[in-house]
């Protein structure tokens, strides 16, 4: 397999991006379905939501737009499969969680270099803070809670769960992906 065009714009949205945005969203939805519906037994007291790493990773690998759609559409689908209805402001928050790591997509070299991983992790963390922050603050507006409740009931649980799952799994997936990049670039 040949490496495709080397220089690409960060905000490009061509056929490949359409496909990977769709795949990312479907993966996020399916993983959430697997954890919620199939009830893959969760570890002790952390809610295992491995899906949250998908928008972050797709952002890092394929750019901010793909990251955003993966998070937005993926969360929409995962709520759907779990039968939770439609929560637009949380979809938006998840979208942002994919968008921020996507901003450093062009800085990636091998996907396993320490520099790549640190950069991706930092941006993923920013994405979680901003994304979950936006969702929690929207919740204040929609549900009429005060700031402290929004932080305590919405932001902190979402932040902890996403940060633990996302930040631990992101490097693992990046390293796995680096092997594929290496193979296709050969």
């Amino acid at each position: 397999m040949a490496k495709k065009e080397s220089k690409k714009s960060l905000w490009k949205f061509g056929t490949r991006e359409v496909v990977f945005a769709a795949i990312g969203a479907a993966l996020y939805g399916v993983f959430a379905w697997a954890t919620n519906v199939l009830q893959i037994p969760a570890a002790a007291n952390v809610s295992i939501r491995p899906g949250v790493v998908i928008p972050m990773f797709f952002g890092v690998a394929f750019g901010p737009i793909v990251g955003f759609i993966t998070g937005f559409l993926g969360n929409l689908l995962s709520d759907w499969f779990s039968g939770y209805g439609f929560w637009p402001w949380w979809d938006l928050g998840n979208g942002l969680m994919g968008l921020f790591p996507g901003l450093v997509a062009n800085q990636m070299t091998t996907f396993r270099a320490a520099k790549d991983i640190i950069l991706a992790e930092v941006m993923a963390l920013v994405g979680i803070v901003v994304g979950m922050g936006v969702a929690a603050i929207s919740e204040m507006w929609v549900s009429g809670m005060n700031f402290i409740t929004a932080i305590a009931a919405n932001f902190i649980p979402a932040f902890i769960s996403n940060a633990i799952n996302g930040l631990i799994l992101l490097p693992i997936i990046m390293v796995a992906y680096s092997a594929i990049v290496k193979r296709s670039g050969r």
Partner: peptide, 17 residues
């Protein structure tokens, strides 16, 4: 504990890509 899901999500994700 979190890493435990890697054998599931890595093959599915890489295959999909």
């Amino acid at each position: 504990q979190v890493k435990k899901v890697a054998p599931l999500i890595i093959p599915v994700t890489m295959n999909a890509i």
